[in-house]
């Protein structure tokens, strides 16, 4: 029986182009271009590998405004079978709690799902909440910080990675795995698949479609309150250049800054 695989993704501002507004202390994303959340690219790649090995169908799911459509087409271009955009004005202002609730509702609406793949965290807020939250609302097993996955007759065998080592867990489906950033090399879309993806289009669902009342989500149902934001003090570089013909000076500087220990 073919596996039903879901990859959840968020479109985020490119991290290198986001900065903290020094006056308002809020994140200024206005100058940033958007990208697929980096860890989600690894989640999609892992799902594609699982599909290649065990067969199945991959649905990419995102709860984002419609600007996300080209990014979802990119996911289909890389090999996902279809993309669903959950888009509804009522979700505006949702933090990770109602977001997880709404995504879980959309996954339930897809029907019987075997494995849900999520990035370990998003690059724009880094909470790592949504994958585990979805597992909770789906009443599914969770394996977080996963680098690779095998499937064995109703069970997911997931390798989890930590600083101390790795852990291999065996959990029954339906399961949610959150995938580590940089744990694989995401493939690129091909021209053929991308053309087909654009022609195929993206399925758009609203809350009504997934059977969730508008008053279950949004800012009012978000327990997070941002009290304040504290930027790190800026460290300006001295711009001093030390060339290779002055190695002694270089060693001095390293010693003074305790980067190396002086020897006799």
């Amino acid at each position: 029986m073919a596996l039903e695989l879901v990859v959840i993704t968020k479109i985020v501002p490119d991290g290198s182009e986001v900065f903290i507004d020094p006056v308002n202390l809020t994140l200024n994303r206005s100058l940033a271009t958007n990208v697929i959340n980096p860890a989600d690219e690894n989640a999609l790649e892992l799902a594609l590998q699982v599909k290649a090995r065990y067969g199945g169908r991959i649905t990419v799911l995102s709860m984002t405004p419609p600007f996300a459509i080209p990014y979802l087409e990119e996911c289909v271009g890389r090999g996902a079978d279809r993309a669903i955009l959950l888009s509804d004005k009522a979700v505006a202002g949702s933090d990770t709690y109602p977001t997880s609730l709404a995504i879980a509702a959309a996954i339930k609406h897809i029907g019987k799902v075997d494995i849900v793949f999520a990035g370990e965290k998003t690059s724009d807020s880094s909470t790592g909440h949504v994958g585990p939250g979805v597992a909770e609302f789906l009443d599914a097993e969770l394996a977080s910080y996963v680098s690779s996955v095998e499937y064995d007759d109703g069970y997911v065998i997931a390798t989890r990675e930590f600083e101390e080592g790795t852990e291999v867990v065996r959990i029954p489906t339906p399961a949610v795995v959150t995938v580590l950033t940089n744990s694989n090399n995401p493939r690129k879309a091909s021209l053929r698949r991308k053309i087909d993806a654009i022609r195929q289009g993206v399925i758009v669902w609203d809350l009504k479609e997934v059977g969730l009342p508008p008053d279950a989500v949004g800012l009012r149902n978000s327990p997070t309150i941002v009290k304040r934001m504290i930027p790190f003090p800026r460290r300006d570089r001295k711009g001093e250049k030390i060339t290779t013909d002055n190695i002694a000076k270089l060693v001095d500087v390293f010693e003074q800054n305790k980067l190396i220990k002086g020897g006799e």
């Binding site: 990119e74 690129k188 879309a189 091909s190 021209l191 991308k194 053309i195 654009i198």
Partner: peptide, 9 residues
């Protein structure tokens, strides 16, 4: 036009 970006012919 159909626009495909990020793909090298």
């Amino acid at each position: 036009a159909m626009l495909v970006s990020g793909v090298t012919v």
